[in-house]
Design a protein around this nucleic acid. Structure first.
Lengths: 209, 209
DNA sequence: CAATAACATGAACTATAATTCATAATATGA
DNA sequence: TCATATTATGAATTATAGTTCATGTTATTG
């Protein structure tokens, strides 16, 4: 009622709003921003077009809210893993092996982000920081790999290239992994990514526990 | 005039047609299919919209001609390199180091292909074989890596994953490489890709000339 | 140089989809 | 319950962009 607590009405409104965003995300990620009409979103969410405009100023705004809201959340989850304490090898391992969970949870928004924003199919005004998800994650990965090289754990590759390569490999799987693939298969795939990358990066000198 | 020779008029018509395709390719690759209007193509090519329809049945047809014509050409160039005789290591090396040339020559069409077709932003009817550029190249890469593993040149990674990873890494550079980057920089980048991939794949046993 | 054919033009037409807003339905609280 | 405020509706409006076609321009040829 006062500062932090929301009234029932406010809560209900928020819930409807999220419902709309969630359905829009599904449609956009499947068909792309331009190929989804407000009519379609209205029908799928069982509201009228007018009501959509009651919640969002425009189709573009709706999209931006989607990206900004969810994007921040996704980014912070990624960084959480990448900032965990442990050896560089362990961090990369954890990052790769967390991908199935990320995919299951955020596959749609990632797909949308990559097709519309990263590929610059859409030119949107109000998308700030989220615009840099790519850069932020890549640069953190790059840092980690660089440290690993300095410590003599990894081969002396170019850290930026290695980071981008790992990022691109993971990104590819976003598009390949459809919802109906069972989890074991996805986990298996990332185990192979780990074998390819981590073992390829490690110096062959001694064994790495 | 007769069978093979084209009349001047026919040659001129073909030239104009190619001019239009070339300009459309530039615009589409920069802004995406849906974000480019026939008006824009008309203005940029210094024809009228009516004339565009004199050359192409529809906007969609124009796009399809673009993809089909150029796509086949690009695919065959890629496969040419991948079917060259030599050791698996040499083939992969040549493939990676040819990327700057491919990029310079076909950057636009590759970008367009990846954003519109591979990302399935567009559902087009008459795009057959070209739809499989990705699969064909990936599977050839995969074959090569598998043979390298069998011959004991490469580590025992999953060939499909390694092929996809290499493909994705290269794909990424399509989007990064803008036209104004000088060639040396691009070549340098792919040298680093080569270091990351090839050296990471090679078994550390003995030296590989 | 005509007469004719071939081609180019862009305003008008059409289709599609975003947005608005007068009206209807629903919720609130006295 | 009734008066009022809030919210939802979807047909009408507007904007945009693909397509057509009557008309004008250019090229060919006898």
């Amino acid at each position: 009622m006062t500062k932090k607590e929301l009234t029932r009405k406010e809560r209900e409104r928020l819930q409807r709003r999220n419902e709309i965003l969630s359905i829009a995300l599904k449609l956009f990620s499947e068909q792309g921003f331009r190929n989804v009409s407000m009519q379609q979103i209205a029908e799928a969410s069982e509201f009228s077009v007018g009501t959509l405009y009651n919640f969002f100023e425009s189709k573009e705004t709706l999209f931006e809210e989607l990206i900004n809201t969810t994007g921040q959340q996704v980014l912070s989850e990624f960084l959480e893993i990448l900032n965990e304490p442990g050896s560089e090898k362990d961090i990369l391992w954890a990052f790769i092996m967390h991908q199935p969970k990320f995919l299951a949870k955020h596959g749609n928004i990632l797909k949308l982000y990559f097709t519309e924003i990263a590929a610059k199919n859409l030119q949107l005004s109000k998308i700030h920081d989220v615009n840099n998800i790519h850069k932020i994650i890549d640069s953190r990965l790059s840092e980690i790999i660089e440290q690993g090289i300095q410590k003599g754990i990894f081969r002396a590759v170019d850290p930026e290239i290695a980071a981008k390569s790992l990022g691109a490999t993971i990104e590819t799987s976003v598009f390949e992994t459809t919802e109906n693939v069972n989890n074991d298969e996805v986990i298996n795939k990332f185990k192979k990514v780990e074998q390819l990358f981590l073992e390829g990066l490690l110096l062959p000198k001694d064994s790495h526990a």
